[in-house]
Each structure stands twice: as structure tokens, then as C-alpha cells.
Design a protein around this nucleic acid. Structure first.
Lengths: 209, 209
DNA sequence: ACCTGAACACCGTTCAAGT
DNA sequence: ACCTGAACACCGTTCAAGT
């Protein structure tokens, strides 16, 4: 499992194969099947190992700080094991620890006054954002969606895409800052949602009196 | 390409193969290579076709409405071709149309008063969120990260995950509402960011006088 | 210009056999 | 309990040959 994770981080899931893993372990391909019931099972085990290796620590500070810290931890773990993210996203079943961010986030938001459904939705906003950002960074957003390259190579003309051409991003793109910006935008948005529903609830209870 | 897209939407990228495509076309596997230089090239062509098929229409309304409409369109297109999302995310190069949402979003946000770097970052928040949400919906978030199933199957205990167990999501999960919630949260967050930098700029120009 | 058939190097996996 | 070797059904792709 350890060697599999290393291979995945090094060469990606595309180039990973049971036979090559066996080769690196100096063993016949079939020996792998004594420890694992198949490729699927092996990748599952790798995903489990990564998920279990994440430590979110103790919550401290207000709800914004708690949530921000949680997703910073998640992001750092994903960046440390770029090969594992796709695995986690496609795993059939993951260890309970995968729900730690949900627990932390929903709990913090409930405490801040957000309703249960919205708190859960907010969690999904934060995870999809965080994992998506990691994907772009590791798999190379520098692929098809690299506006900078498209502008440089002249695949895009100023006429149809004036703003894209003008906003040509500074290189190297600072993923950390982009992530922090996103987190604070989302938290700001949640704060104003909380203010709004809180105000609605207050005026409702005022009417009730 | 049309048949390939249909196969991908139907059975997913995992089960797709050149040989099976050839089979469905009633032709020998090698015939495919007369029209396309390889599997990679074929998938690229599929991604291109999907991207080119998206029509974002004319911008109308204020910046919030413009942006929301843009990502609703993107989301609808992705949901219509679930098999193509992974392709687009991993394509090496995509047609210019892929930058339309960036153009629309950055332009709208610049107009609303956001700085160039933040406008670009905001675009990435919105795309990662939108595509991530689509992934969860189509690939089945119902995989490893399905809290509902985990609770039902008793893989999670109330002691360590009180909030997750309590927040047991209503079934069926309403992806549309979750998406709309996320969009409005992000737009709220951007609005308060704009207010903040706008205020900072105003007070700076006041000092300058 | 398009299709075929045989071939090559790779896959995941099974199964009988070894120690 | 662990490993091996041969085999099977599948890949993507090349290449010479056909029309």
C-alpha cells in the first residue's frame, strides 16, 4: 500500500498498474493477490490510508477560524498526496474520518445560527471548492483551462475575449492566495446568509409576540 | 465522436474502449484510426464537441444575475453530458469557448468594482464549485462520501460524529437547491468583498484629498 | 480514401501448482 | 501462509495488405 501510494503520487493513476507495482516490489504480479483481492481493493486501501492519516486537530477560535483551519488541513493533506485525491473521489466506501470535515463544519455553522439543511449545503460548497482547487493545482489546470497559455499561443483573440486577454494572470499563479481568497469569500457569504435568516427569525418572533 | 459521447455518457470513461466503440459502429477496431490519431485524440474531439455545444446566450440583468445564469448554463451542459466532464477536466487543450465563463464572470466582476486578481480568483471559486457539485451529482457522491449511507449502515457512531448523524440529509438530496444555495453564498461573499475594497478605496481617496 | 487481419506489448485476474 | 508460471480475455496501437 505504501509503495502503491508512492507510485500514484509520482506517476499518477493513469500509469499505475498492478504489474508495475509488483515489479517495483521485486515480486511476481500474482503475489499481490495474496494481500489484496484485486486492483479495486488495493486502491481502496490506499485511499483509506490517506484519509486516516489526516489530523484535523482541536477546534479553536470562532466558527470562521474553525472552518478555515479545517479546510486548510484537508487541502494540505491532498496536496501532499496528489495521486490519492482522484482515488478518494471515486472510492466506494471510505473510513469514518472522511466525515470529520463535515462534522466540524456543520457543527460550527449550526452554532453560528445557520439552519441544518443550509449548514450541510455550505459544507458541500466548501469541499467541492477545496477539492476542485486542489485538482486544478495538481492535475495541472495548466491543461485545457489555462487561459494564460491560450493567450500566449494566440488561440484566443482579443475581440471575443477582451477581459480574459486583459486579465492574463500573473505567473506563477499563487494557488495559496487563490485558496484563501475563496475561503474568505465563502465564509463572508455564509455570514451574510446567517445575518439574513437570523434577522428573518427575529422579525418572525417579533410578529409572534 | 457522437457515438463515443453517447457511450461515455451511458457507461462512463472507465468502461469505454476503442475496440468497444468500433464494435458498436460495426467496424474493425483499426478502422477508427483512419479518422483519429489515437484514443487520446478521440476523447479530445469529444470534449471539444461538448464545449462547443454550450451556448451562454446574452448577458442580461445585474452582475449577480449575469454570473448566476452563466454557471447555471455550464452546470446544465455538464449534467447533460456526465461522461464528458472528466474529459474536459483532463483535456490538454480545449476550444476557445471554454473561456466564455471566465470572460463573462471576470468582466461582470470588474464592472462591479472587484480588482483584476480577485475577479480571476472569484471565477475559479465558481468553476471549481460548479464542476465539483456536478461531479458529486453524476459520478455519485453517493460513493465514499455519502454520510446518509454511512449513518444508515452504522459505519459512523453518534459519539464521534454527533452533528453528522443529526444532520442526516433528507432523501432525495436536492442538488438543484444545493447548487443555488452555493451560488448565492459565493455571490454574497463577493458582494461583501467588493463593499470592503470599495470602502477601502474610497477612504484612501479621501485621505489623498 | 478507407477498411482489414495479424501481430505486439501491455493489462487485470484465475487457477493449479509449488514451498 | 505466501509465492510462482501458465493461461485467458481484454487493452491500445503498428504495419503491411487489400479495395
Amino acid at each position: 500500500v505504501r509503495e502503491a501510494l508512492a507510485m500514484l503520487d509520482r506517476e499518477g493513476q493513469q500509469r499505475f498498474s498492478v504489474r508495475r507495482l509488483a515489479g517495483r516490489l521485486g515480486v511476481t504480479p500474482m503475489a499481490v493477490y495474496n494481500h489484496v483481492s484485486g486492483k479495486r481493493d488495493l486502491l481502496q486501501a490506499v485511499a483509506d490510508a490517506v484519509v486516516d492519516g489526516i489530523d484535523y486537530g482541536e477546534a479553536r477560535g470562532n466558527w470562521r477560524q474553525t472552518i478555515a483551519a479545517c479546510f486548510r488541513t484537508l487541502r494540505a493533506a491532498c496536496l501532499a498526496h496528489p495521486g490519492a485525491v482522484a482515488l478518494i473521489e471515486s472510492a466506494d466506501e471510505l473510513p469514518p474520518g472522511i466525515f470529520r470535515p463535515m462534522e466540524i463544519t456543520v457543527s460550527a455553522l449550526r452554532g453560528a445560527g445557520l439552519g441544518p439543511r443550509d449548514a450541510l449545503r455550505a459544507y458541500f460548497v466548501l469541499t467541492t471548492f477545496t477539492l476542485g482547487q486542489v485538482r486544478y493545482q495538481t492535475q495541472g489546470w495548466a491543461r485545457g483551462v489555462d487561459a494564460d497559455a491560450a493567450v500566449r499561443e494566440g488561440r484566443i483573440d482579443r475581440r471575443s475575449f477582451p477581459t480574459v486577454v486583459g486579465a492574463n494572470p500573473p505567473r506563477p499563479w499563487d494557488f495559496d492566495r487563490a485558496f484563501e481568497f475563496g475561503v474568505s469569500v465563502i465564509l463572508d457569504g455564509l455570514e451574510s446568509q446567517i445575518g439574513r435568516t437570523g434577522a428573518a427569525r427575529r422579525s418572525a418572533s417579533r410578529r409572534r409576540r
